[in-house]
Design a binder for these strands. Structure first.
Ligand SMILES: [Mn+2]
Ligand SMILES: [Mn+2]
Length: 321
DNA sequence: GGTGATC
DNA sequence: GATCACCAACGCCAC
DNA sequence: GTGGCG
């Protein structure tokens, strides 16, 4: 159930009002659901001066886009209670007594133990994550109901400390060539930090083995063909500071990547932003996409992510690699 | 950030 | 009411 | 076992 535009507008108005007052209050999310919030006027991104309330308003306004990215997926949280420049910690298990609007399910952890986890897909859940300073809320590649069937797999391009972003783009286009050659399609987005994510939607009932093998084959082929620019070597010291690390290792159970449309805990409050492949040109700067610029972009380009992720690649190809 | 203990 | 201590991940792999 | 890694 996705709230209407009018309902979302009511929520952003409430957030605005609470932030302008004491910063503490209760947000009415629906007829009988509400969320207690606090410190909405506290700055969590010092450089642009972005508050917790502004992040909540961003998530509310892009909710129609974000919802399908998070729906039914266990989340891994990274929390920054003192702002994105402060200390952080990861959180896997749901807290003991989460508010009613937060979806929690008993899930088998990768190690095989039952644990209570936060599940994405409701606005209340996402606003709660922001409330507790979880500025990164990363979804698993499986959904409750099919917890052993990954429905996407990712090739994660991580630039070294001295790689120009143009080099990330170059490698991304080589990955695209490899995908084309194999007859596969994929979505591309900024990671929100310094790299790029190339996400390959998988057919139903795909296995972890497929999710782990497909990106690996492509990554090794690209790094093998372009050793000057790309590498799959794991130790940083043996990697070369201006090469792009083609990371195929983010596809095991419990590993995650940033959600499309999700904010990152970076100084600019940048957002992992879906792109058209033809936008991968030298002028592209991932820092241009922030919670303050995304609304305008979405108005013109619409949802570049949902439709691609809903179109699985053929099992015939993906399982025979 | 949330909670429970303590002065 | 203010202050404080404590809590909040994990799997893989090379060595 | 410990450390590096994301
Ligand atoms: Mn990355
Ligand atoms: Mn990575």
């Amino acid at each position: 159930m996705t709230p209407s535009a009018a309902a979302l507008r009511k929520i952003t108005d409430q957030l605005q009002a609470v932030e302008a007052e004491s910063g503490d209050g209760v947000i009415q999310l629906g007829r009988d659901s509400s969320l207690k919030v606090s410190n909405l006027a506290k700055v969590f991104f010092p450089k642009p001066g972005i508050t917790k309330g502004e992040v909540m308003r961003y998530y509310t306004s892009v909710w129609p886009y974000l919802r399908t990215v998070l729906a039914d997926r266990p989340l891994s949280l990274k929390r920054f209670p003192d702002g994105v420049a402060g200390k952080f910690f990861f959180q896997q298990k749901a807290p003991p007594n989460p508010p009613d609007v937060v979806r929690v399910e008993s899930i088998k952890s990768p190690a095989g133990e039952i644990q209570e986890r936060i599940i994405g897909g409701t606005l209340g859940t996402t606003l709660y994550c922001t409330q507790i300073g979880a500025f990164e809320c990363n979804p698993w590649n499986v959904r409750v109901g099919s917890l052993s069937d990954p429905d996407f797999t990712v090739i994660d391009l991580d630039p070294g400390p001295k790689s120009p972003f143009a080099r990330v783009i170059e490698v991304a286009l080589w990955v695209k060539e490899a995908l084309d050659h194999l007859g596969l399609h994929a979505g591309v987005k900024t990671s929100g930090a310094t790299g790029i994510h190339i996400v390959i939607p998988l057919p139903p009932k795909s296995t972890d083995a497929v999710a782990e093998r497909v990106p690996r084959l492509i990554a090794e082929a690209v790094a093998g063909a372009h050793p000057q620019s790309a590498t799959v070597v794991r130790p940083i010291s043996k990697r070369g500071s201006s090469k792009i690390y083609v990371d195929f290792g983010q596809n095991a159970r419990g590993k995650t990547i940033a959600a499309a449309y999700g904010v990152r805990a970076r100084p600019e409050a940048s957002v992992s932003t879906p792109l058209r492949w033809d936008e991968l040109t030298p002028g592209l700067d991932p820092r241009d996409f922030t919670i303050r610029t995304l609304a305008a972009r979405l108005e013109t380009v619409g949802d570049l992510w949902g439709p691609i992720m809903k179109r699985p690649n053929p099992a015939r190809i993906v399982t025979t690699l």
